[in-house]
Design a binder for these strands. Structure first.
Lengths: 160, 160
DNA sequence: GCTTGACCTTATAGTCACTATAACGCTTAT
DNA sequence: ATAAGCGTTATAGTGACTATAAGGTCAAGC
């Protein structure tokens, strides 16, 4: 079980990450500045892979990079109280819960919108446009309350 | 009912939008380039307010700015087929649905994570960290499948 | 007249978590 | 020797705004 060595591409493959993302984590201080070989290539080991997998798992669970940094710091401080970790998780859970209920409301509104216009007419008579235009009279609980929400994930336009 | 005039701040207040956002919509071509008074101030009318409200409602429903632009174009073309609008709504509904089920899965994972570590121990024995670190053996369906998801809405860090 | 404050203007940079692009060097196979 | 396929750096773009700076306009109050 000698320490396996990885170049950035191999680490990327082993962690289902892109090389640019790994370098990004390095710039952000989540990954260390690894040693280089004679050609200047980054050389990683199994500990780096573990750390990267930790990051990816956490990110996949929706933790922000900043929070992941905190979690990593905690994970490195073996005698920090476990409650600190749990606090992050619970807080995040709260956010997810909130987001979920927002999305449920949103979906209901979209369903209502979609249902209200099934014919093959023209825009002139489109009840969706009418609804978006703020029709007085009719289903009037459609009016939005506060902040809009992000429809698509950031920066992931084309397929991998 | 003479056409009321608005300056940008009044339009902002009437639409619960920030002035910078209105100018952003102008740059993006969602709002027209309004006439200016002698001091160079933008002067809007009720039609502008209606259009802005349309935009805000659509954004609140999670349509991207690009899609809102399309919807506005459609709304302006009175004899375009209504089905074009419905297509956008249905497509968006599909995305919302997908996101919803992703979030539900995520929540379940976080709940499991949160439940597994309720004691007052130290990180050394923290089951959450262990889980994020990729514990072999134990609940092993925790492994993420593909792409991470965005935890917070973009660019809304501090309160309004 | 002068100042204060609330409004308006523009331009530029920052947010988040990457992704894309360019322009280059190294290594190995053909 | 040349091409493919890695690696390197630096810079800019994504979405939908938000923040900041540096200034012009206008009405009210002193």
């Amino acid at each position: 079980m000698a320490d396996k060595e990885y170049r950035v591409g191999q680490l990327a493959q082993a962690s289902q990450t892109k090389t640019v993302t790994i370098r990004y984590y390095e710039r952000e201080g989540l990954m260390r500045n690894p040693p280089r070989n004679c050609s200047g290539y980054r050389i990683y080991n199994d500990a780096d892979l573990d750390r990267l997998l930790f990051i990816r798992r956490s990110r996949h669970l929706g933790f922000s990079v900043d929070t992941v940094r905190e979690l990593l710091d905690l994970a490195d401080t073996k005698d920090a109280p476990c409650a600190d970790v749990d606090a992050r998780v619970s807080q995040h859970l709260g956010k997810v819960h909130e987001r979920l209920s927002q999305l449920r409301t949103l979906k209901a509104e979209l369903v209502r919108l979609s249902d209200c216009c099934k014919g093959g007419g023209a825009i002139r008579d489109c009840r969706i446009i009418e609804s978006l235009s703020g029709n007085r009279g009719g289903t009037d609980e459609l009016r939005p309350s506060q902040k809009p929400m992000p429809p698509q994930p950031a920066g992931r336009k084309k397929g991998p």
